[in-house]
Simulated assay, not measured.
Amino acid sequence: MLEARFHPRIEELPAAAWDALRTDGNPFLSHAFLAALERTGCIREDWGWQAHHLGLYEDERLVAAAPLYVKGNSHGEFVFDWSWAAAWERAGGDYYPKLLNAVPYSPVPGPRLLAGDGPQAPQRRETLVRAMRQLADAHGLSSIHANFLAPDDLPAFDGQWLARSDVQFHWPNRGYGGFDDFLAALNHKKRKNIRQERAQVARAGLRLEVRRGDSLGADEWRQAHRLYEGTFDAKGNHAALTRDFFRALGEGELGAATHLALAWEGERMVAMALFLQSGEALYGRYWGSRVEVPGLHFELCYYQGIEHAIRAGLQRFEPGAQGEHKLARGFLPVRTHSRHYLADGSFRKAVHAALAREAEAVDAYAADLLEHSPYAHRDA
């Protein structure tokens, strides 16, 4: 018999057992990453986040789990349902709170239903989904949302869940020996543009380096956080990750998984891009800068990341959500998937119709992107 339990802190769940349920080494699903978010003040009720993690137990042994949050808004999710919330509230309903099965502030595809890879994994994923439904129905919640799902997660969601898809841009490593090999695979125009952008940065005279998180000292982490915070504030966005969270990225297993591309002007850190890494992939997350240097954003966020992925022998580089401009820099369109349960049948039917129209547009957009591949050979 499986017993479902909900936990207000991930530290109530055993770290080793949680991590053993991950099948792809995705660092955003690690117990350490999620615990650091909670411990350092990034998960706060007044910001719309309450942890409510789900664990399935068999004879007191954790056999499946899901990162789960009660949300009081839709900030920090990257699968946008603001129009659904507005429509439901115009009709007199309360859209919030809702349930969210996702990683906070991180539009990174990966497993959301952690069940290992044994023969019982599919059934346990279905049990996790049923437990979410039972919780939402028992508390009269409007909806449940599972964002950026891995392919193995999708069969666990039955026909009561609405399917939604979008496009991200990922860089595929085709076994390149170095950055010049990657450039050689591009068409002439894209290759020339990238070289020009890199030359602009070189002329600025900045010192560039890629550092592992556990090699940075406390003052360097403070500088990196100031760059992140200042850039978010300048764009009118909420910098939800605290200085203590950044410092946590330099410790323990997170320190080994975290990498930063840094730009220095003398002894002063003037720009940074932050990445996390698994055994297969590099994940671009945050950027910050205090200087205006043409091409610097592309250099730190994309080209330094590509060079690092080649050196480390990684299969792909996922630089983050959105950004059609990434196509011209060697990143190709990849579909992402989410599932949504709306408790009210009439509302669900209306949103289903809207999603059908949206799906047609996304399909056409993805097909058009593939027609404009930056590579010299379409199948590169």
Rank of each mutant, 00 (worst) to 15 (best):
L274N: 09
G266C: 00
G266A: 09
V270Q: 04
V201D: 02
A256R: 13
R290M: 12
Y286N: 13
G288R: 07
E229H: 10
G230I: 01
S215Y: 01
G250E: 08
T258L: 01
G250H: 13
E251S: 03
S215V: 03
R198T: 06
L274F: 04
G213Y: 05
E267N: 08
R222P: 09
G252Q: 06
V291C: 07
V291L: 05
E253P: 15
A234N: 01
R243N: 09
Y286H: 12
L216E: 11
L208H: 14
L249R: 12
L227Q: 06
A257R: 04
F275T: 07
G266W: 01
L274H: 13
R285Q: 09
L227V: 09
W264I: 00
E267F: 06
E209F: 01
S278P: 01
W287A: 04
E280V: 04
G279K: 00
Q223A: 14
S278L: 00
A261P: 14
E220S: 14
R207V: 11
A218H: 14
L249F: 08
E220I: 04
D219V: 05
N237S: 10
E220A: 14
W221S: 06
Q277K: 09
G205N: 03
S215K: 05
Y286R: 11
E220T: 11
T258P: 08
F246I: 04
T258Q: 06
V293K: 08
A204L: 02
S215T: 14
L262C: 06
H259K: 13
Y286Q: 10
A239L: 03
L274R: 03
A240L: 00
Y286E: 02
K235D: 02
D233S: 12
R207Y: 01
G205R: 08
L206P: 14
Q277C: 12
N237L: 08
E267A: 14
F245I: 12
G279Y: 05
H259W: 15
G266F: 05
R222G: 15
A204T: 05
G279W: 02
E292I: 01
D233R: 05
A224N: 15
G205D: 04
E251P: 08
E209P: 11
R268T: 11
D214G: 06
E229Y: 04
A256Y: 10
W264P: 00
A239T: 03
E292R: 15
W287L: 01
Y228H: 09
A257L: 03
G284C: 05
F232M: 10
A239G: 09
R203H: 12
L241F: 02
A256C: 14
V210N: 10
A273V: 06
V270S: 07
M269A: 06
G266R: 09
A257P: 02
Y283E: 14
A257H: 08
G250I: 03
Q200H: 15
R222W: 10
L249S: 13
A202W: 02
D219I: 07
E220N: 10
R285G: 12
A256I: 01
D219T: 07
L249T: 13
G279I: 03
L206N: 15
E267S: 13
A261D: 10
L282H: 07
G288P: 09
E229G: 01
A281C: 13
R247I: 03
L216D: 07
L249P: 12
